[in-house]
Design a protein around this nucleic acid. Structure first.
Length: 188
DNA sequence: CCAGGGATGGACT
DNA sequence: GTCCATCCCTGGT
């Protein structure tokens, strides 16, 4: 099987919804302290800062937290949700296009034993945005970093084709009609 | 400094 | 599917 590391330029695609769909079946890899773990991406959500009330950078809002949205795509954006859960996003699009893709679940691939251990032996390893970051060892300190091997988090294309469906995004009822956008992509 | 809030997860029906 | 405890971070003061 042919495997390639996704280059940073992959994330410059200005269409965040297209990119979020293309990421289904791609592989996210982390390597912290020689502990290699990876998983096949099975669920993503797209967020657009210009038009989308659910996005942290809406409406084109610039604060310390959202600064990274205005950089070139290919950076990590990790934030703490409910004071507990570290959620992993990829900033996408060219500079000054505030867009991001939330990775919501993975199917563990490499280092499954390590992932299980990080999840305190909970067998439900990575079916949720907070669970997969725990399984992969991703913390808020890993935010604002280019997604390359040197920084211990990167993405690969394993030439997998996985069918998916489009649904409403989760947990954003406050976003009004934007909560109805079909910007969540879930592998069958 | 501090009030407000949240891109969850687990328990439950 | 619904309910709600959770607790750190954010950003405005």
């Amino acid at each position: 099987m042919k495997t390639r590391i996704l280059p940073i330029t992959y994330f410059l695609n200005p269409n965040v919804c297209d990119l979020a769909q293309d990421l289904i079946g791609k592989v996210i890899v982390t390597n912290f302290d020689d502990q290699l773990t990876s998983g096949i991406i099975t669920e993503t959500e797209a967020y657009c800062g210009l038009t989308d009330k659910a996005c942290h950078a809406y409406p084109n809002k610039k604060t310390n937290r959202t600064e990274v949205f205005y950089e070139d795509g290919g950076l990590s954006y990790v934030y703490l949700c409910y004071g507990i859960h570290h959620l992993f996003n990829i900033i996408t699009g060219p500079k000054d296009h505030p867009q991001a893709i939330l990775i919501r679940s993975i199917q563990p691939l490499e280092g499954k034993d390590i992932q299980l251990q990080r999840r305190n032996n909970n067998s439900d390893i990575a079916s949720g945005p907070g669970k997969l970051t725990q399984a992969l060892g991703i913390l808020t300190k890993h935010t604002n970093k280019p997604l390359i091997q040197k920084n211990n988090i990167w993405l690969e294309d394993h030439a997998l084709k996985i069918p998916f469906q489009k649904t409403k995004r989760i947990g954003i009822d406050y976003a009004g009609k934007d909560a109805d956008l079909l910007w969540r992509y879930v592998a069958h």
